[in-house]
Structures are given as structure tokens and as C-alpha cells.
Design a protein around this nucleic acid. Structure first.
Length: 1076
RNA sequence: GGGCGUUUAGCUCAGUUGGCUAGAGCGCAUCCUUCACACGGAUGAGGUCACAGGUUCAAGUCCUGUAACGCCCACCA
């Protein structure tokens, strides 16, 4: 009755997905009858292509969404893409350079942005298409893009409100400056290269207390010529002493000394105790700069222990400057020349200035030593030129209060992490409360909606735009003004400009931004050129996608939800329909239920969503955060494109199908932080040899010698797949998923469904199947089913998706296929008089078919969230032969599995489970005996026997009857011609013996094999048992254990001891029979 | 440097509030083309739970330390 052929995923996947989309099953609407269950997708980049991280991440989300959809929630999975500022702009710029050989400067801002939009229209949907191939049941109707109008509206509203509230300010920050491309570069765009350089050691003269009297830190003063000359003379004199007359410092970038604003020593450095609070002379600039004690910057054991501090051009020094309230000076222009702060060196290229500074220090006699030095220098990945850390003005969001509220939400459990340990990452990061730099020197993104006056207001008020040291500091306190009305702006702006020396920043309310922009342009205002950090828009995703801020207040009032902050967060684990109909998407779908992501964006994204959600909506954006592992290759390295060690999920889908990929992914979602996945490579050579379809590979090793070589190259770093279009990537792990899909397919089509076809099993609609009509194996599989459903529910609640997958696997494969199917076969078929097998038509067979249909029905429901395609396909097939299913009562099955009800966990029947457990033990004992006989026979070159001729089973009275009723099953599954069961049977002579719990299994050998081997085996078993028994006896005779352990545990151990003693006695008795 | 994590069978990993005679898949060995499935069935071998201490009646599980490996963050005047 072979159904023929394995499961072919490609034959069903496209069609099934279309069926779901056409049926509108993915779409969710506010619905008073159902509680919402909402997940926001972690936004993939528009530039992105699906990788294994996505496969894992989205498999988990889809599994959760499908599970809850089946449980009756209004399940909504919000899809979308991120405009990914830097990444996208870089991709398009690169493309422009290659195809049209133009740079963005040639194209101009508007031109470039237009090009990127064109690119986005062409390629932006690719990643979403690939998510569809994963089976993702996203609500595609709601697809958003962080740069689209809806999201932009929220972005500008948030910016405006924060600006108005004084939470956004402009401040100094060190950026990685690419002087060639004249742009700031992100940290991850920097490559470190070791270069040969020099290490210059030179002196800063110490000023006497008298000379520096009246200098108040942090202010710096120009020192009079003569004072400077005297100080230098002391520092270079014959008897000049380090630590008294001068401090020696060292650097690889001597030109930065022009911007030094302090020298730093360790606070507990004995050598410089008396210098704390004193000043040194900064030569060449003749400026007094303070000596500060800072244990975080200076290290006593390194060099002289003195460090020059250049807050404007070094990240560590910058941090030191902030801690010690030092002045910060920028000495570079955007194209890498020394600016006006560099005094005599202004206008020179920084490398020319370096030589000049060195020469001048030498001529002053301050240069001590020049060493050759190899060190790492950050280079821009794009221009390959050295990065200059440079101070620049950036926009920031104040974190103090926002971070505190987000921390509180985690501490009081409004946001819970699964696994819990990741809460620490979140709290630690927020605890630093570092202000969030939100401006980026890019063109692709939300442009910062701030204008400032750069024109001429009136003849007598020409603003002094010269950037001096003082204005850098003063601008921190400059007037920030947010305008709510257009005419309000016209009126007040003039007053403000007059009052502030025209250094105000103006942020108009979003809804008259357009009108403002026109006015601004005509009146000498310029918009800030920068765009917002990409994370700024993604931080708003949970509510921006739902239409905030449109009619925000009104809709919430209409829905009867007042005092939002008091409203409880959605509890995902309980079905609790709300009574009033929420009027808007925002009111209904916010907060979302769970965020599923990997740990690297806990800080960048998770924490920020919580902050914005709390601030603007008054509720956390999600109740749960599930952090899943990061997938690594077989050597424990992170999979990445550049190393070429990644597995492409689309390759896996091609080879094994989507469900196989998903099952294996689900199985990897454990609580560990990394999961390894050994990578294999299949080359076209092999494919040609073994054929296209994966099942043609069979168990053969797919790697031919040629492939092995190519694979080795690939692992070493070459991305052959990408560069040469060769072969496919895979991992043996996916065979597990593939095999399971096939097993489900075979058992369903080849056994269950084919047995239901054309039988009367499903015709008796309306009749009840009472508990008494069920066979013991029926009750057993129903009990196991109940156990599996309960287990899966518990695992889902804790986001242990790997255990969900394992439970499905074990139930379906081990319990259902290996045991139940085999146990019911005798009830379904009989051998006719002609010797042919035919279906039985009696009541027991009808019940068996009904149970089979029911258990398959329930299994498909259970497996659907993880393996949606194969189960939906089988659901249709099952529906065709058994449209009405059920146990106590037949009901019409739902037309689509995706929307079918999740099964209820029924009662377990422990009595029956014990009974079948005993039966299985006996069957295994019989099979084992047969296998050992055949092994022994093959050793002595005798032919194998197909069946045992006879077995005698002695069982304790309590289970003897149960076993006796199963003689047919024992004969069939134990592969034995004749089985005899009883409480008082006689042991046949020369028997192979197995001693189980309360059961002895005798197989008369009659020369089938050597008895000595049997004796040896029993002795080994006896010794092992005896060891356990001794340990248990010791445990139970330990007074501490008996008195302190819980009574139930003691009782359990006593029972186990008695059982062991019993078994040992039986083993001894049987050994005695064998003359041992 | 700071933080987090991992170390259990040849490989990849499970192991719940401590109660374990430590499990799975792959691989391995032997047998089976028996009427769903060779992407299969059956049976078996294989482990001092990294190491050293400690807590406890009881430790794979909790604590401390050591070692190796990995990830994230900060950075090397």
C-alpha cells in the first residue's frame, strides 16, 4: 500500500502560502471578541538579504504568532523594513561610483536621496519576499518603512515634543572624521591597521605657583612672553628635574598638542602629589593648562605616568575632559587642516603641522626622545585614510529620566526578559545614562527638523559667527525654541533673534513645518544638514506603525480607555477579552506582547523602545522580551558574509524545504547564548552526480574530493558561493528537520489517511465513542497526546521553543509512529482466506480509525506553528477522507489549519501509561533477545532467524492479566511465534532470561545460541545492579537522609530499593539456574 | 580592561524549584528491502558531567576559585 514518494516541499509550499494570503488569515483588526497578540518584527535593513539569524528570529516569531492565532487571539505580526542610514547610503554610493562613476558630492543631496529612493523601490522588497518563503504570516497589509510618511510623522512629533521639553540639546561629541570624504564615520566602518610610526617624548614646563596664581581651572590663559620664556628655560636647564621643572609626556600625534587642555597624572602617584591643581605651560601656544589627577586616564606604571590631554581629538581624553570639566578645543578643519585654534600653525595640513611642531619643540630644547613605534590606527573603510577623532556639534537626547523610567519598568516586571539573565545587560547599559547622540552626518534619513538663522537680520546686527573657544561653550546654553504656531513663530522669532545674538535653534511643530520651511528659506534660516540616527525611528516602531500621533487623544477617549498609564499591560498567557471595543489600532494593538530578538540590540533598540513607549504612550511597548541564541559556525565563529562561513537559508529551503529549516531553527532556540551549526558545502559537481533533489543524496557523503578542496578554501575565507556562484551551503543539522517532515508526511498519507479512505470508520456520524469502546492502546495514545499538549503549552509560556520542537518530535515519532501505529495494526487488517491483507470492518477497527483520525487531527494542529506547510497540506488531505472528526463526537473540521483551534490538553491516564510501559519493556526484551541470538549466530556463521520460536513470560499477579490480554501484540511486535504469559508459568530449560520490573522473560534457546554468553551478560547486569543497590542502601541507612529529606523522596527511594532487591534476587535465581 | 556566557557520549546539544541508575539527534556496530516510511525499522556499544575546593541528607544542577573557549561593550598616551 505504498503511497509512493517522499514529502516534496516544493510541490506544496507556494500553493499553501497563496491559500493563506488569499484567505486573509494573516490580517488582524481590532476585535472586541478576542484579546490581541502582537509582535513587531525586528526591522531588517532594506539593503539586507535573508541570513540564518533572520531564519531563526522569524521562525520563532511566526511560531508564536501561529500558536496564539490558533488559541483564539487576534494575532498581528507587524512587518516592515528599516532605512538603515549608513548601510543603505553606502550601498547606493558604491553602486553610483561603479556604474556611473559619480560621487554624492557631484550628485548633490537631493539627487542622491532620489537615487536611493529609486534603489529602494527596486530592491527594498526583496527581504520581505524572502520572509514569505520562510512562511512568515505577517500582516502584510500593514507593512511599513521607517522612512515612509506614517513613520516620519511620528519621528517629527517625537522630536518636536522632546525639543520643546528641553530633552534634546546640542553638544560636543567626538566623532570619527574621515578628512578625505569629509564625513563622520560610524564605529563599525573603521578598520584597524598596524602602521609604523614614531613615539615622541617631550617636556611641558611646570609653572610656579606664583606664575599661575589667579588662573582658575578650567580657564586657560595666554601667558606673557617672558613668563613662558622663563618656564622653558627652567625646563631645559642643566639641572632641570622631571616632576618639578617639567613633566614629560609622549604621543604618536604631536600636532594634537596644539589642542591640549591639561596634563593628567594618577591621583595616587607619589611622584606628582604636590603638582595637583598646578599648571604647566603648553609650549608653542604659550598657554597655561592645568595638571589634573584622574585615575581613569593616567596609569602610574606606564612611562612617566603623565599623559597629555587632548579632549578635542582623543576619545579617552574627551572622557577625561568631561569628568574634569576641562576646556575642549577643536584644532582641525573638516578637510584635515589646522584651524584658527592652532595659532601659528593655522592653515597647514595636519601632517605638515606635525613636522613643524616637532621641529619647533626641538629648537626650544623640549624634545627628549623619538622612538620608532608600531601601533594600530583606525582607517576609514571607505576612503582608506586615517581617521581623525574630532569634536563636532551634535544633537543629543538627555537620558537621565528616560533611562530611569525604562529601568523601573524592568525592575517592577512590566518588561520581563526570557531568559531572565538578559535583564542585566539592559539595566547595566541604561544605568550609565549616557546621552543619546541622535545626529548623523548623512543624507539618507529623517532630516533634523531644526533651523537656525545664518543670514542678516538687519544692518546693525550682523551676527558674529566666528567660532571661538568661548562660543563653543556658550552655544551649549543657547536658546532652543519650539514653535507651536506659524504666526507665533514670525512674531517671536524676531524678538528671540534680537535677544540671543541670533544663535537660536528653531524647531517648528510638525504640522506647519512645510510653511515654516518656506518662511525660513526666505528669511535667512538654514536647516540642520544632519539626519537622525536610524535607531531614532526604530525606537518609535511599536506606536509609529499604529498611526500615532494622529487623533491619539481622541481615539483613546473614544475607546473609553482613560488614564493609559494605569491600564494593565496585555498578558499574553491568558485569554481575557476586553469588554469595550477599542476604536483604534493603537488602542487595541499597543502595547505589543513580545519582542523576539538577539542580544546584540538589547541596548540599541529594546531599551530605546521602552523609553519612548513610556514617555509618549505611558505604557511599555511590550511585556516580554525573548532573546534567542546567536548562530555560529562549526568552529564557534559568528556567521558573517565577510568570513564566508554562513549558511544561506534559501539554500536550505531549496535542499530540504521550509518546514525542515524551521523545525531545525526552532530546535536551536534554547536558552544558551550561542548555538553552533557545522557548515557543509555542496558543489555543482556533486549535484550533477547525485541529482537535484535532496532525497537522492541518500546516505552518501555528498562531498567529493573536488568539493572538499573548494570547501576548505571557502572556510578559509573565500566566499565561493557568492563570488563564483558555486554550489550550496548546508549543515547536517537540517537533515533532522527534513527527516521529521518526511516522517509526518509518510505516516499521515501512507498510513492514517490511506486507512481512512473508503472505510466506514468515518461514516458513523453522531455516534458516541464511549470510554469503554476504546482499547488500551487508544487510551494510551490519548493520554500521551494530553501530556504532549500540556508540555507544549508550558514550554511556549517560557519561550523554550526548542523544547516545543522536541516534544512534537518525540510524541509523533516515538509514541505515535513507533508504538501506537504498530499497536493498532492488528485491529485494522486481517489476512483473508486468499492470504491477502484486507481491512477489517468490525467495531474495534472503526474505533481505531476514529482514534487515528483524531490523533492525526490533533497532531497536525500541534505541529502547525512550527511546520506550517506540511501540516496545512496534510490537513487538506485528511479533510478529504474524514471531513468530520472527533472522539466523543464528530464535528466538521475547520477549513484551514492556520485558523483551527489549538487542542485542549485532556486528562492523562497514568494507569494505562504504566500498563503500556510494561508491555513495551517486554517487547524490547524479546527484540533484544532475538537480536542477540542473531548476533551470536552471525559470529558463528549460522543464518539469522526471523522470529523467536517461543517465549514464556512470568509476571507478577498485578500485571499478568494485562500482559496476557496482549499476547497477539507481544507475538507480533516481539517477533515471536508463540508467547505464553502467566503468574505461575514454568521456566523452560536452557532459556535466555531477561529480568524486568516484576516480569521475567524466558526464551528457550534450544541450541539457537551459546548459553555461556547469556550467563556472562546476566552476571554483568547483576554486578551493575548490585552497585546501584549498595549505594542506595547506604543512602537509606544514612540518618541524615531519612530525617531531613522530604518524606516523598525517602518513600520513593525505599520503593526503588525494594524493587532492586527483588530484581537482584530474581537475577541470582536465574544465574543459579545457569549454574552460576 | 569591564560585563555576559559556555565547558555533559566521537560531533551538535538537552537536562525545569538540587532527588539521576545522566538523555536526544547525527555518527558508529549488528540485524532487517515484514503490507506508511531506507529521509525507514529493530537492537546495542559509547559519559569520573573541564579542573580544584565548598554548601547540603543529597550537586550535572547552588557557591568560590582555576583553566580553556566564545560573545558584547570600552579601549591601548
Amino acid at each position: 500500500m505504498s503511497n509512493g514518494g517522499s514529502y516534496d516541499p516544493h510541490a506544496v509550499e507556494a500553493e499553501i502560502y497563496e491559500f493563506w494570503e488569499a484567505g486573509g488569515y494573516f490580517h488582524a483588526e481590532p476585535n472586541a471578541e478576542r484579546p490581541p497578540y502582537v509582535i513587531d518584527i525586528p526591522l531588517p535593513n532594506v539593503t539586507g538579504a535573508l541570513h540564518l539569524g533572520h531564519a531563526l528570529n522569524n521562525t520563532v516569531q511566526d511560531t508564536l504568532i501561529r500558536y496564539h492565532r490558533m488559541r483564539g487571539y487576534e494575532a498581528m505580526w507587524m512587518p516592515g523594513t528599516d532605512h538603515a542610514g549608513i548601510a543603505t547610503q553606502a550601498v547606493v554610493e558604491k553602486q553610483l561610483k561603479e556604474t556611473e562613476n559619480i560621487t554624492r558630492h557631484e550628485l548633490g543631496r537631493e539627487g542622491l536621496v532620489k537615487k536611493i529612493w529609486e534603489w529602494k523601490e527596486d530592491y527594498g522588497g526583496r527581504i520581505l519576499g524572502q520572509l514569505r518563503r520562510l512562511g512568515a504570516s505577517c500582516d502584510w497589509d500593514r507593512t511599513r518603512f521607517t522612512l515612509d510618511e506614517v513613520c516620519a510623522k511620528a519621528v517629527y512629533e517625537v522630536f518636536f515634543q522632546w525639543f520643546k521639553a528641553g530633552l534634546i540639546y546640542r553638544g560636543l561629541r567626538l566623532v570619527n572624521w574621515d578628512a578625505y570624504l569629509q564625513t563622520a564615520v560610524a564605529d563599525d566602518e573603521i578598520i584597524h591597521e598596524t602602521v609604523k610610526g614614531k613615539f615622541w617624548h617631550y617636556r611641558y614646563p611646570v609653572l610656579t605657583e606664583e606664575e599661575s596664581a589667579g588662573l582658575a581651572a578650567p580657564a586657560m590663559r595666554e601667558m606673557p612672553e617672558d613668563v613662558a620664556r622663563k618656564a622653558i628655560a627652567r625646563a631645559t636647564g642643566e639641572d632641570a628635574r622631571m616632576g618639578t621643572d617639567y613633566l614629560s609626556v609622549a604621543t604618536t600625534r604631536p600636532e594634537t598638542m596644539l589642542g591640549d587642555t591639561a596634563v593628567c597624572v594618577h591621583p595616587s602617584d607619589e611622584r606628582y602629589q604636590d603638582l595637583h591643581g598646578r599648571y604647566v605651560l603648553l609650549p608653542l601656544q604659550n598657554r597655561a593648562i592645568p595638571i589634573v589627577a584622574d585615575g581613569l586616564l593616567a596609569k602610574m606604571e606606564l612611562g612617566t605616568g603623565c599623559v597629555k590631554v587632548t579632549p578635542g581629538h582623543d576619545p579617552n581624553d574627551y572622557a577625561c575632559g568631561q569628568r574634569n570639566n576641562l576646556a575642549m578645543i577643536n584644532i582641525l578643519t573638516t578637510d584635515g587642516k589646522i584651524n584658527e585654534n592652532g595659532g601659528a600653525y593655522a592653515g597647514q595640513d595636519r601632517y605638515d603641522a606635525r613636522e613643524k611642531v616637532v621641529a619647533d619643540l626641538e629648537s626650544l630644547g623640549l624634545m627628549d626622545q623619538i622612538e620608532d613605534y608600531e601601533h594600530d590606527v583606525g582607517h576609514s573603510d571607505r576612503s582608506k585614510t586615517p581617521i581623525e577623532p574630532m569634536l563636532s556639534k551634535q544633537w543629543f537626547v538627555k537620558m537621565a529620566d528616560l533611562a530611569e523610567s525604562a529601568m523601573e519598568a524592568a525592575r517592577d516586571g512590566r518588561v520581563t526578559f526570557y531568559p531572565q539573565r538578559y535583564e542585566k545587560t539592559y539595566l547595566d547599559w541604561l544605568g550609565e545614562k549616557r546621552d543619546w547622540c541622535i545626529s548623523r552626518q548623512l543624507w539618507w534619513g529623517h532630516r533634523i527638523p531644526v533651523w537656525r538663522f545664518t543670514g542678516v537680520l538687519s544692518a546693525e546686527r550682523v551676527p558674529d559667527v566666528e567660532v571661538t573657544l568661548q562660543t563653543w561653550i556658550d552655544e551649549e546654553k543657547v536658546w532652543h525654541e519650539a514653535f507651536e504656531e506659524h504666526k507665533d513663530f514670525q512674531q517671536r522669532s524676531k524678538t528671540i533673534l534680537a535677544n540671543t545674538g541670533m544663535k537660536g535653534f528653531f524647531c517648528p511643530r510638525p504640522d506647519f513645518q512645510r510653511a515654516f520651511a518656506e518662511f525660513a528659506q526666505a528669511n535667512g534660516f538654514e536647516q540642520d544638514p544632519d539626519v537622525l540616527d536610524t535607531w531614532f525611528s526604530s525606537a518609535l516602531w511599536p506606536f509609529s506603525t499604529l498611526g500615532w500621533p494622529d487623533n491619539y487623544g481622541k481615539r483613546f477617549r473614544d475607546s473609553g480607555i482613560e488614564g493609559l498609564s494605569e491600564a494593565p499591560a496585555t498578558q499574553p498567557s491568558t485569554l481575557n477579552p476586553q469588554s469595550s471595543i477599542p476604536a483604534s489600532d493603537l488602542a487595541y494593538f499597543y502595547p505589543t506582547t513580545v519582542l523576539v530578538t538577539s542580544r546584540d540590540i538589547i541596548t540599541l533598540w529594546v531599551a530605546r523602545m521602552v523609553m519612548t513607549g513610556l514617555h509618549f504612550i505611558g505604557r511599555v511597548p511590550f511585556s516580554h522580551v525573548h532573546i534567542h541564541p546567536v548562530i555560529q559556525d562549526g568552529q564557534g565563529r559568528r556567521m558573517s558574509k565577510s568570513t564566508g562561513n554562513g549558511v544561506d537559508p534559501l539554500d536550505i529551503i531549496q535542499l530540504y524545504g521550509t518546514d525542515a529549516l524551521r523545525f531545525t531553527m526552532a530546535q536551536m532556540d534554547s536558552e544558551t547564548q550561542d548555538a553552533r551549526l557545522p557548515v557543509d558545502y555542496i558543489c555543482p559537481h556533486c549535484e550533477a552526480e547525485f541529482g537535484q533533489k535532496p532525497h537522492h543524496y541518500g546516505r552518501k557523503t555528498v562531498k567529493c574530493e573536488k568539493c572538499k578542496q573548494e570547501f576548505a578554501t571557502r572556510v578559509a575565507g573565500a566566499d565561493l558561493h557568492e563570488k563564483h556562484g558555486l554550489g550550496l551551503t548546508t549543515s547536517p543539522k537540517f537533515e533532522l528537520g527534513r527527516n521529521f517532515c518526511n516522517k509526518v508526511w509518510q505516516a499521515s498519507t501512507g498510513f492514517v489517511i490511506s486507512n481512512l479512505e473508503g472505510t466506514k470508520g468515518q461514516r458513523d456520524a453522531g455516534t458516541q465513542v464511549g470510554a469503554d469502546a476504546l482499547g488500551v492502546e487508544d487510551r494510551w495514545i490519548l493520554s500521551r497526546l494530553a501530556g504532549a499538549i500540556g508540555e507544549i503549552d508550558r514550554r511556549f509560556a517560557r519561550y523554550q521553543i526548542n523544547e516545543v520542537a522536541n516534544t512534537l518530535y518525540n510524541f509523533f515519532w516515538n509514541d505515535f509512529c513507533d508504538w501506537y501505529v504498530e499497536l493498532v495494526k492488528p485491529r485494522l487488517f486481517e489476512r483473508g482466506t486468499d492470504g491477502k491483507v484486507q481491512p477489517k470492518a468490525d467495531a474495534s477497527a472503526d474505533v481505531a480509525r476514529r482514534v487515528l483520525a483524531h490523533v492525526l487531527d490533533q497532531s497536525l494542529r500541534m505541529m502547525h506553528p512550527v511546520m506550517p506547510f506540511v501540516t496545512e497540506a496534510l490537513w487538506k488531505k485528511l479533510g478529504a477522507v474524514a471531513p468530520r472528526r472527533g472522539l466523543s463526537e464528530l464535528r466538521d473540521a475547520e477549513p484551514a489549519l492556520i485558523k483551527a483551534a489549538w487542542p485542549e490538553a485532556g486528562q492523562r491516564d497514568e494507569q494505562v501509561e504504566r500498563e503500556i510501559d510494561a508491555l513495551q519493556d517486554v517487547i524490547r526484551a524479546l527484540r533484544d533477545t532475538l537480536a542477540r541470538i542473531n548476533t551470536s549466530r552471525s559470529g558463528s556463521k549460522q543464518p539469522a532467524i526471523g522470529k523467536l520460536p517461543r517465549a514464556v513470560i512470568r509476571a507478577d499477579a498485578s500485571i499478568a492479566d494485562g500482559l496476557a490480554a496482549q499476547v497477539t501484540v507481544l507475538e507480533r511486535l516481539g517477533r515471536c511465534e508463540q508467547v505464553e504469559v502467566g503468574a505461575d508459568v514454568t521456566k523452560p530449560d536452557e532459556s535466555a532470561t531477561q529480568v524486568l520490573r516484576g516480569v521475567e522473560v524466558y526464551v528457550p534457546l534450544g541450541g539457537l545460541m551459546d548459553l555461556a554468553a547469556e550467563k556472562k551478560r546476566l552476571q554483568k547486569e547483576r554486578n551493575a545492579l548490585n552497585g546501584h543497590l549498595e549505594r542506595l542502601t547506604a543512602k537509606l541507612s544514612n540518618e541524615g537522609f531519612v530525617s531531613k529529606a522530604p518524606a516523598a523522596v525517602v518513600e520513593q527511594e525505599r520503593g526503588r530499593l525494594a524493587e532492586m532487591k527483588d530484581r537482584l534476587a530474581t537475577l541470582d535465581r536465574n544465574l543459579a539456574d545457569l549454574g552460576g
